[in-house]
């Protein structure tokens, strides 16, 4: 009896967990009764976090909605998505499902989904896939890759931060020194140093993408070291933003407009407009190219932009400085540090 009840409770708990962990799947597709010629372009997206996360996943979802609008609404383009798929195996199953259901383009939005895509894509030669942030299409004819030159916005924000600082010390909180985070942080540091060669940029990679409390601790230590402007990247920075808000220290955001987190101290955020890439990919697919190309969003192609917080009083000098830097990066006269090939 005891053993039975033990097994019972374990099964019950796991059943509840399974329910709780299941990602949301939403399809806006109605059963197709239209004639083939009028069929809308069907896009599916698989994302690791929620599509309203104010960060990585939302940037892509917003882009899909923007492209849908450009193309003429739901009759021209249909969007389906599965979000909160932080378990790669679950995401892989969703990618395969969408391919089976005949979607024209399946987007695997997360660099952790790369190896799954590498396995799945060859099984569905008539479906186009896109993934990012990454630059590698695996040499497959039906895979597109996309990434962000986050060092460009980082550079602009570094210039602004150095101009705002009176202590001559800036603080940066990063997760792990790789990928998008490294590009942003290196760009920020280079921009700050270009603006003021004597500036001291304190960089603290906490070692975690998710430990919010640790990010808060890192922010505290940077403020103690004299930093009077802060920035950071990845989803755990919310903890650091909280510390900055408490101490009224200006904050620069990236990946999404972080103004909502602390309207009093967010100066500006680098935001991604993936629609630039998505509309190009859709055009290519409609012309018969199913993949093999990789895309980079940056300041000059409009895929990246600096979103100023309208509630933050920014002096016109600093804003002009930012605009000049954006123009300089766009015309090639300013060169933020590019990542070494293969990194």
């Amino acid at each position: 009896m005891r053993r039975l009840s033990t097994i019972g409770i374990v099964v019950l708990v796991f059943a509840l967990v399974a329910t709780a962990c299941g990602g949301g799947t939403t399809t806006t597709t109605a059963p197709g009764t239209t004639t083939p010629s009028a069929e809308p372009f069907k896009v599916a997206m698989v994302a690791p976090s929620a599509v309203n996360d104010l960060a990585f996943s939302q940037s892509m979802y917003d882009a899909l909605l923007a492209v849908q609008q450009q193309m003429g609404g739901e009759s021209a383009m249909q969007i389906a998505y599965s979000d909160n798929l932080f378990v790669v195996d679950d995401a892989a199953a969703a990618i395969r499902d969408y391919a089976n259901e005949g979607y024209d383009l399946v987007i695997a939005h997360g660099s952790q989904f790369g190896s799954s895509l590498q396995e799945i894509a060859p099984d569905y030669p008539d479906t186009a896939f896109a993934w990012g942030t990454a630059g590698d299409t695996f040499g497959l004819p039906n895979v597109f890759a996309y990434e962000a030159a986050s060092e460009e916005g980082g550079y602009v924000e570094g210039v602004m931060a150095a101009a705002l600082s009176t202590s001559g010390v800036l603080g940066v909180i990063g997760p792990v020194e790789v990928g998008d985070a490294k590009r942003y942080v290196d760009g920020f540091k280079a921009g700050a140093e270009a603006q003021n060669s004597a500036i001291d940029v304190k960089v603290n990679y906490t070692g975690s993408f998710s430990d919010v409390a640790l990010a808060a601790t890192a922010a505290n230590t940077e403020i103690a070291a004299g930093a009077d402007v802060l920035t950071g990247t990845a989803q755990m920075v919310t903890g650091a933003v909280g510390v900055a808000k408490e101490d009224s220290i200006p904050w620069f955001g990236t990946q999404a407009d972080q103004t909502a987190l602390a309207p009093s101290i967010v100066v500006a955020s680098q935001v991604y407009h993936w629609e630039v890439v998505i509309s190009q990919i859709i055009d290519l697919i409609q012309q018969g190219t199913m993949g093999g190309e990789s895309f980079v969003i940056n300041l000059s192609n409009g895929g990246e932009a600096i979103a100023y917080n309208p509630d933050y009083t920014l002096s016109s000098d600093v804003k002009q400085l930012a605009e000049d830097t954006i123009a300089g990066i766009s015309d090639g006269s300013i060169n933020p540090p590019r990542p070494a090939a293969g990194s």
Binding site: R2, T6, V10, V13, F14, V17, C21
Partner: peptide
């Protein structure tokens, strides 16, 4: 229910994490 404490505890952890 006298469940094995280590196992049921992990179950409660996963439940709290997911929920």
């Amino acid at each position: 229910l006298q469940a094995e404490q280590g196992i049921s505890g992990i179950g409660f952890y996963l439940f709290g994490l997911g929920m």
